[in-house]
Amino acid sequence: MLEYKKDGWKAALCLAPSLLLMCVFTFWPIINSFIMSFLNNYHFALNREDVYNTFMGVEKSYTYIMGGRFTGIGIQNFITLFRDKDFLMALKNTAFIVFISVPATVIIALLIAVGLNSIKAFRGFFQTIFFLPYVTNTIALGLVFNSLFHVDYGLVNKLFNLVGTSWINSGATWGRAMFVLFIYSIWDGLAFKIIVFLSGLQNIDKQYYQAAQIDATPRWRVFTRITVPLLSPMILYITITSFMGAFKVYSSVIGIFGTGRYGPVGNEKLLITIVGYVYEQFGVQGMPFGVGSAGSTVLFLIILLITLVQMQVSKKWVHY
């Protein structure tokens, strides 16, 4: 670009389509969601008549806004949220997925990428295989895992002589169901991470390795003192984005257990996640979006906090 020029109106023209759409579908939702979490008892209705009919004759006074009604401004939603045992369950489940499956996946992916980088035969072939999960459909995959761990007919039970032990069918315990979710998350998450790590590894100048070779550096020390530090920006990027994505876990659970179910038959809320909890509000009578939005806001704050912590930690460990 030419430095002196001011492209104000031209830029406005170019950005107009994007920004207009984003105003409606991105910025507004953020603001709206934030507001809704502070509107006590906010319930949404599809049309005016519904609003009128549903809430006629109830003592409390309501204010109408944005197609729904609420009773006051405050943190009532948050209180309801944290009193709801389903939400607490969701927090616990989500925490498990985030803090256990993500680090595991990152480490496994890193080892695979380093391994792939060092072998010469069939590297392209293996690369293709490891990337396959990236193009799978979450629901279809959920169905596959569902059948893999089926109590009577699944491969896992047949292979390890465990027929009758329920992983995802009725009677499954929390531990076993969570295990299935772990394996699913790891399987699904490897592809992206491996590719990013591999490209980062290939960008490391070979001369560093040659210099280390001349100095008779043992393999593990090459890995810890050279490869990992030089790869640390990638590792940070992957860790941050993976954590962010893991907090949003939802489709995988639905895929494994079915629409609206987060657990086996008979215990459908077993593995409910934060996002799942929020979406559940759609099904409740009167659509209490206030609570759901509060849940979203809480989730956002958690993500923000964890990301900031990571950035802080990265100052010491990441070398550019």
């Binding site: 560093y208 040659q210 003192r225 030089l230």
Partner: peptide
């Protein structure tokens, strides 16, 4: 042998001292 590369191949994330010490650690 000791080899000095054209681009020096100094480990960018280590200090000068650590760079020089590196071969000795392996010994």
């Amino acid at each position: 042998i000791g080899l000095v590369f054209q681009n020096y191949a100094l480990y960018p994330h280590m200090t000068v001292k650590q760079n020089i010490l590196f071969p000795l650690e392996n010994m």
